[in-house]
């Protein structure tokens, strides 16, 4: 498994190309997954999260070979077992994504690339993500143990590409929640996940408008993403 692509996000032209393509065509999120592969620090991070060793190894192995076909026909497993069993795994998976989103908006706010109404909006979205982090941490701790916060790094070159990345992150986030909804066992956890899912959807639609993409890029029915699709897509932003 490749761990060679974890350095210098901004210096990697191939990756920028992939992000660009993704931003240009949000429907091609799955292609993005295939392009970026699943190497990088996330695999190490997940391994370090502990949990059941067998499951960790197994899931990481699967994700290295993930393709659109295989993952979209994945069976009834949540693909989040490396974060814990059952609902705990799903909550910690969501928590990891929310950590990432919250950290992203903090970096964006600090970057100085945005001012005025746009900055206010991005800060508000970031505050929403922080609220999600808080709630999910609490839930995870009540079910077991909350996943650790990953160390993240994002390419923050210019306002346009950052806005596109924000849109991508939110669209993927919404798709990730949708991908888990039917796998959640607890009614309470499900209710919480649903109430976060539609907030991610609101964020995604607004950011899509800002970058000139359709508010519903998949049409009238949103397309879910499995954990096997989502984790490789975000792995480039996790450095350890």
């Amino acid at each position: 498994m490749s761990i060679t692509r974890q350095k210098g996000i901004d210096q990697d032209p191939a990756k920028k190309g992939a992000l660009q393509r993704l931003a240009d065509d949000p429907v091609s999120r799955r292609k993005f997954v295939a392009v970026t592969g699943s190497g990088s620090a996330l695999t190490l991070f997940l391994a370090a999260c502990g949990g059941d060793d067998d499951e960790s190894t197994n899931t990481s192995g699967e994700s290295t070979t993930s393709t659109t076909e295989e993952t979209s026909t994945a069976a009834d497993t949540s693909g989040t077992e490396m974060f814990g069993k059952g609902d705990l795994g799903i909550v910690n998976y969501a928590l990891t994504l929310e950590y990432l989103e919250a950290a992203f908006y903090v970096d964006v706010a600090k970057s100085g690339l945005f001012k005025g109404a746009e900055l206010t909006l991005l800060k508000q979205f970031g505050a929403n993500e922080e609220a999600h982090v808080g709630a999910l941490e609490q839930t995870a701790n009540s079910l077991g143990k909350a996943a650790p916060q990953p160390k993240t790094e994002f390419p923050l070159d210019d306002a346009k590409s950052v806005a596109m990345l924000a849109a991508t992150v939110e669209n993927v986030g919404a798709a990730a929640y949708l991908g888990q909804a039917a796998l959640i066992e607890s009614e309470e956890v499900l209710a919480a996940a649903l109430s976060i899912h539609t907030v991610e959807a609101r964020h995604a639609a607004v950011l899509n408008m800002l970058v000139g993409d359709p508010i519903t890029p998949d049409g009238a029915f949103a397309v879910p993403m499995s954990a096997e699709e989502v984790l490789p897509a975000v792995s480039d932003f996790i450095v350890s």
């Binding site: 949708l178 649903l194 907030v199 991610e200 639609a205 029915f221």
Partner: peptide, 16 residues
């Protein structure tokens, strides 16, 4: 799962 794929669209409409 299907209701979820609809409600995400409603959420997008609402945000927009």
């Amino acid at each position: 799962a299907t209701a979820g794929s609809i409600v995400q669209i409603e959420g997008r409409h609402a945000g927009a």
